[in-house]
Structures are given as C-alpha cells and as structure tokens.
C-alpha cells in the first residue's frame, strides 16, 4: 500500500518534471549528495538468534531531474564487518591421509560483507571504479600478511579465491543486486540480511551514489552486533576470566555428578 502510493507520487512527479524540462548548464548546479539512516543501532544475538534483517533508508539530494527521469542513478549499500586476520589452509594427501599443508595469511579481511544494489554492478560502473572503491565480493582487497613491507609467502590466487568462496558459502559475503529499491524518485530503501552467524562487533555501512559509471557521493554509518544476556555473560566470563570460568565449569560438573549419585545412588547397591 505504502510503497504503491509512494511510487505513484513518484511517477506523477516525474511526469511533471518532463513537462517543464529546461536545458541544463545555464546555472551552477549543486552537487548530488546521498543521505542515509539505519533501522537499528544494535543487533542483539541471544540464544535463539536466527539472523536478522537490517534496513537502510536514504535519499539523493540535489538530484538532476534529467538523470532521474532517465533512471541513471544507482545506489549501492555495503555492510563491512570487523576486520580479521584470516589463515587459509589447503589440504593435501600425504601417505594416504588428507592434511593441511600450505597456508596463506591475509590481513584486514572483513569478517562480514553484505552488498545491496539496485542493478547489476557491471551496469553501475566500470571495473576500475568498482575496484577503487572496493565494491563487490570479488573486489574486497585481500593482502598477504607482511611485516615492514616484506611479504614472506608467494602470492597464490587460489587461496584468495577460496577465501571468498568459503565466505560466500557461509553467507558471510553476499551480494544482492536487487536489494536496493527506489520508493520515490529520490527515496530508496536497502534490505540486508544478517545471517545467524553474523560476526560480533562494529559493522560499518556505506551508501554509494553512482551516475554514468562515476561515483558521485558516499555516506558512512555503523551499527553494532552484540551478544546479549546470558550468552554475553558466558562469553565475556570465558574470555576475560578464563580461570574462574573453568573453576565454575568444574563446580557445575561436581555438583551434577554428586546430585546424580544422591538421586540414583540410593536405589542401586
């Protein structure tokens, strides 16, 4: 309902602008900007968390009427999760047994990447532009671990491509080229799915505005994914106070064992 009426308002707006179209360039046109808002500040992961959906709303400011009419604007929204150091290992057969042999370590790999756009990336901008802005799963920069500018291992493209593939399979790297929908001529909404295994931490959200293969503007925001309640307590306890966590685990086991012997022990000789 809501969307339908917005679209019809948009169509009416477009029709009106078509009738009053003026030649451009006769005055200084203000630059296009993009604005956005995220539906959630914090996503809480609790014991029955099965994933979540995040919506990003935004508008194009100072749009060019002609570009609007010709549907030339493209919007890309990308979520990038906390950075990780990822070791990719490859199994090889040795004495008949499959074991990890070669490995590569990649630095600053996003733990999560979800992209939504209103059309195919290839139709939005040429490859160099997409690459420069690291847009798309295949363009996430993967640099081998190095110290003081010296990389110790030979580059091996199959390790990088396997990293992308494994993360895609786990739904940690996703692309949805119909995830951005224009609700009016300048108002858009992006729906992005957070899977149940979404990494904990701060996720940044970037919205990009493209026209004719050029990036005009971008805007950044962020949201947090946090463990909630009991899970948060246990995780923090285990990682911050490992000894006490272990002691608690032992006490829980001793009590369970003792209780079992009290409850069932009486009946048995």
């Amino acid at each position: 309902m809501m969307r339908g009426s917005l679209v019809s308002i948009g169509l009416a707006f477009v029709a009106a602008t078509l009738l009053t179209v003026r030649p451009a360039g006769s005055q200084t046109v203000p630059r296009e900007e993009i604005q956005m808002g995220i539906s959630l500040d914090t996503v809480e992961v609790n014991s029955d968390f099965s994933g979540s959906e995040i919506a990003v709303f935004g508008t194009i400011e100072n749009p060019d009427k002609l570009a609007q009419t010709l549907n030339e604007y493209s919007v890309v929204v990308a979520i990038t999760g906390p950075m990780e150091e990822v070791t990719v290992r490859r199994k090889e057969r040795l004495f008949g047994i499959w074991m990890n042999r070669q490995s590569r370590v990649y630095r600053n790999v996003p733990s999560f990447y979800a992209l939504a756009a209103n059309r195919d990336l290839a139709a939005i901008a040429p490859e160099p532009v997409l690459k420069e802005n690291a847009i798309g799963v295949d363009r996430i920069p993967l640099s081998l671990f190095s110290t003081g500018g010296v990389t110790f291992t030979q580059p091996a493209p199959e390790f990088a491509s396997s990293l992308r593939r494994v993360r895609r399979e786990k739904r940690l790297f996703t692309e949805d080229t119909s995830g951005v929908v224009f609700l009016g001529s300048t108002l858009f909404r992006a729906n992005l799915r957070l899977p149940s295994n979404v990494p904990i931490g701060k996720h940044s959200v970037t919205a990009y505005l493209f026209r004719n293969g050029e990036m005009l503007a971008s805007r950044e925001g962020s949201f947090k994914v946090e463990k909630a309640g009991f899970e948060k307590f246990m995780y923090t306890l285990a990682h911050t106070y490992g000894f006490w966590y272990g002691a608690l685990a032992v006490i829980a086991a001793l009590v369970t064992g003792w209780l079992a012997s009290v409850i069932f022990g009486g009946g048995r000789k």
Binding site: E84, N100, V109
Partner: peptide, 8 residues
C-alpha cells in the same frame, strides 16, 4: 581449503 580467523 579451510579458514581460521582471528579478530584484529
């Protein structure tokens, strides 16, 4: 191929 990740 398998991955192991450590948070930076």
């Amino acid at each position: 191929f398998s991955l192991t990740a450590i948070l930076v």
